[in-house]
Amino acid sequence: MPLLELDGLHLQAGTRTLVEPLSLRIEPGEQVALIGASGAGKTSLLHALALALQPAAGTLRLAGEDAWSLSSRDRHRLRRTLMLAPQHPPLPPRQRVATAVLAGRLPGASMAESLRMLFSPDEAQARLAFEALDRLELGNRLWSRVDQLSGGERQRVAIARLLVARAGLWLVDEPLSALDPQRAQRVLSVLQDTARAQDRTLICSLHQVDLACRTFPRVIALRRGRLYYDGPPQDLGGRRLDELYDDLLNEPPAAEADALPPAAPPQAMCR
């Protein structure tokens, strides 16, 4: 049985279409990269998969359950089986990093365990948070406040939160946008290796097309809200990739970007 099954899923915001009706199946333990130009519908789709955005039409089944035919209480229960890591994690500025990471453990935790994690983590909980942070080169930030972190460090704290979560489905939105290329590759490797070792299902949206094609066995591409491609990365290249990003490539460059070197052509990235 697929973990996720979408049948004619259609997403709207008012009268504006976010994602055209699409059908997908994602099996347990799969690792999938979600790519496409800005505004293609990637974030909207991830929020729908996280049961945070109700479809205008179609069905979404998670672990065999039709999510939007359930009661609010049962849908909340189903949400505990997944975790969404947004591109800009909403971390309270005065919160300690240890507490921010351990928040990933709150779904399904007892009241006593939750209170300890939020106000006074015990030794085992602190060790869990430290180990996740240390894998992301942030072990020395365990007791720092969130407002003392850079944007890239905050992104890695959100990934550490994911690494300690009990959720079986990880939905990750642009986790590398504030990281330099070398660190981005290391962080993605930690994320994928952990998901594989723990038998988690990983769906990750990326603007780094080269990384997506090099490290994920399956790539789903959205173009203008439509499913454009779904398959192995080796079959996505050349004209296909040019067309996927044609809206982006045809945009006039921003004034402040005039001094930057031109980006590598997308077709060079997926070969």
Rank of each mutant, 00 (worst) to 15 (best):
M1T: 14
L4G: 12
E5F: 10
E5A: 15
L9R: 05
H10L: 15
L11M: 10
T15K: 15
V19K: 02
S23T: 13
R25C: 12
A33E: 02
G36P: 07
S44D: 07
A48Q: 11
L51Q: 01
L53I: 07
A57T: 03
G58C: 06
R61N: 09
L62D: 00
E65M: 10
L70W: 04
R73V: 13
R75K: 01
R77T: 02
L78K: 01
T81Y: 00
T81I: 04
L84A: 00
P86M: 10
P89R: 02
A98D: 13
V101F: 01
A109C: 06
R116M: 14
F119N: 05
S120H: 13
D122V: 15
E131F: 10
L133R: 10
N140G: 15
Q148W: 06
G152K: 03
R154H: 05
R154K: 13
W170Y: 01
L171N: 00
V172M: 00
E174S: 01
S177N: 13
A178M: 08
P181H: 01
A184N: 09
Q185D: 10
L188K: 10
L191C: 02
D193E: 15
R196M: 14
Q198W: 03
D199I: 01
R200Y: 00
S205M: 06
L206H: 05
D210C: 04
I220H: 03
I220V: 15
R224S: 15
G225R: 08
Y229A: 11
Y229D: 12
D230M: 09
D230Q: 06
P232H: 06
P232S: 11
L241G: 03
E243W: 12
L244W: 03
L244P: 04
Y245A: 09
N250A: 12
L260I: 07
P262S: 09
A264F: 11
A264W: 11
A264M: 12
